[in-house]
Structures are given as structure tokens and as C-alpha cells.
Simulated scan of single mutants.
Amino acid sequence: MQKATTETLYYEHSAANPVTLTVKPGEWFEVETQMNRGPDADRVPDDIRDLYNQYRSDSQPNDRGNASSGSIYVEGAKPGDLLTVEIGEIKVHPVGWTRYRGSTGAMPGYLGPSNIGEQFRICRIENDEIIWNDKLRFPVEPMMGVIGVAPEREARHNGWAGEWGGNFDIQEVTNGAKLSIPVNHEGALLHVGDMHARQGDGEICGGGGIETGGSVTLKVSLSEKPEEMTWPRIENDDYIMTTACEKPAEDAFRIALSEMILWLEASYGMSRGEAYIFLSQCLEARVTQFVNPSYTYVAKVAKKYLV
């Protein structure tokens, strides 16, 4: 199996990034991801410092996050195609961290950063559990925060997300999911990174859920992009999902909602009016991250209702 390693890391989605791996549609390949830089090692408790230092890289810039592996060239991909990325197994490192630096868009202004101060925590990950403290363990629910292609006309820092994919931080981008993204350049130029061992909605602390690194197996396929589709879509065994990133958050919701209406019209035989009142009964939608430069909404419909 071919592998994209962390030897070359990119901090922006760009068509100018040299290709590090070439894959064919239908081929499973592996991507290693680098854990985000995190707190300096001398601030980490003594009992976990050695483990933390095995996976943290001091060579990473401290002012740039979400290192991505790739650029991965997909044979046959061309502008106007739809790239579908199937996510296989995600394996996380045995350590992760989370941090609040004192200011995010999710923090109510009346509290102010000084009432909380900077917070961080380093956690061991053992037996598919995140050891939060002596009393609490969270189950590992891994996800890929960043999967995207090169944007059409510009380079975008990996903190951003948009029609090209990128830093959506959607928990459903996980084992068994299929993420579909419109292609802008020959080869698609896929970027992958920002692995989390788990994340709560909103990603409110800004340092992620439990930031970690590891490996993920992926397989890509190509098809014709649906005419009505603009933003990435997600599908798993139980749901179809649309996505959007915008600020304010209600605009992200409106985009995700409109994308779902157009999908139902084009693929499920509903008029726009019928789709609208149908969604009024069964739409599931939420903000998955509220701290990046633009906020992420995911809109979901259970397949059991798509009869």
C-alpha cells in the first residue's frame, strides 16, 4: 500500500504545492498525519512528557496550525469532476492534547479571557479511551478535521474551509464515511490532516477536541460533479449530509440547507417546495466548529426517510 508520510507538510491548500504521492481511483492508500504543535514540552507534566515528545514536532511553526500531508495527485481527475474520498481505518497516536489560548469566537464576551485564562491538557490514549483524569475516560471517536483539494484561484491557509473542503472539523468525517468534493485542478491535489481523537460540537476551545496524529487509509473515486452541487457532501450508511462554512453561523446554516434542498430535488424526485417541508420534519443540523475563521454547519437527512 502506498503511503503519504509527514516528511513533507503543507500549511495551506494550494495548487502550487509540489505533489508528494500519486494514486489511482479505486486504490487504497495510507496517509500519516502530524499532530498539531501543541503546548511547549517544558509545560507538560513530567509523567507524560516523554510520550508527548515522541509525537510532537518542535520544527513546526508555532503560529501556523493544521499541518497537512499531501499534495496527493489523483490520476484522471480534472476540473469539473467530483472527487469522492472514502475513509477506511483511522489509527490515532497514544497521546493527544487540547488547549484554550484565552480567546475564541465561542467564548461569551461577558466572561472575558481573564476569567478563565489559558488552559491545556495532555491526555494518554489507551485501549480506545482518552484518559481525561483519574475518574473520567472518553471513548475515542476519531475524525479527520482537514480533507480538501486545491482551491480554484488561490492558496488558502489550512485553518480555512470552503467549497474546496479544508478545515471543516465535522465529526462525521470518520471511519466508513465518503466525502465528496468538487475538483478545481488536474489531479485534484488532495490535502489531509488535523486528526482528532474526538471532538465536541463547536470545537469551542480552539485547540481542537483531542488533537492527535496517526494514520488513515483512504480510497478515492471520480465521477461527474452534479450540476447543482457547490459545497462538499458527506455520506455514510445512515445519512446524506451537506456542509457549509461561513460567518455568521446562520449563513452557514442557510447554505447547508439550500444545498440539501437542491440535492433532494436533483436526486430524490422532490420539488423544492416538497423538499423544504420534508426537511422541516426530519432535518438534523448543527454547528460543528465555531472557532475557525468561518463557522461550519452540517445538515443531515436519515436515509430511512428517503423512500
Rank of each mutant, 00 (worst) to 15 (best):
K178M: 13
E265N: 12
K225H: 08
I277F: 13
E250F: 10
A188E: 05
P232W: 05
S215R: 10
N184R: 13
Y276R: 12
A249Q: 03
D194L: 03
W263Q: 10
N184W: 03
D238C: 06
T243D: 04
Y239G: 03
G214H: 07
F138W: 15
L222R: 04
R156Q: 05
G176W: 11
G200Q: 09
I204K: 05
S215H: 01
Y268I: 09
G208D: 01
N184Q: 14
E274P: 06
I240M: 12
V173I: 15
G209H: 02
T230S: 04
W160C: 11
Q281W: 00
V216R: 03
E203P: 02
V140W: 07
H185I: 09
R153A: 11
Q171V: 11
H157R: 13
I170E: 00
A256Y: 04
P248M: 08
L190V: 15
I181M: 13
G148N: 02
M260V: 13
E265D: 10
I261P: 00
E259C: 04
A252E: 00
I204F: 06
G200H: 14
S221P: 00
A244N: 10
E259H: 05
I170Q: 01
E224L: 12
E141W: 00
G159H: 03
E163Y: 11
P226E: 10
T174S: 15
M241A: 08
E228K: 06
F168P: 01
E172I: 04
E228D: 14
G200M: 07
M143N: 03
A266P: 01
N236C: 09
G213Y: 01
H157D: 15
E227F: 11
M195R: 00
E235Q: 14
P248Q: 08
I255L: 11
R153S: 12
C282S: 12
H185P: 09
E152K: 15
V140K: 05
L257C: 09
A177W: 02
A197N: 09
A161V: 04
I261Y: 07
V183Q: 01
N175L: 09
W164A: 01
A177L: 08
E141T: 13
G206D: 01
F168L: 14
G176Q: 14
E235V: 12
P182C: 09
D238Q: 14
E163L: 11
D237T: 12
N236E: 15
M260D: 07
D194F: 02
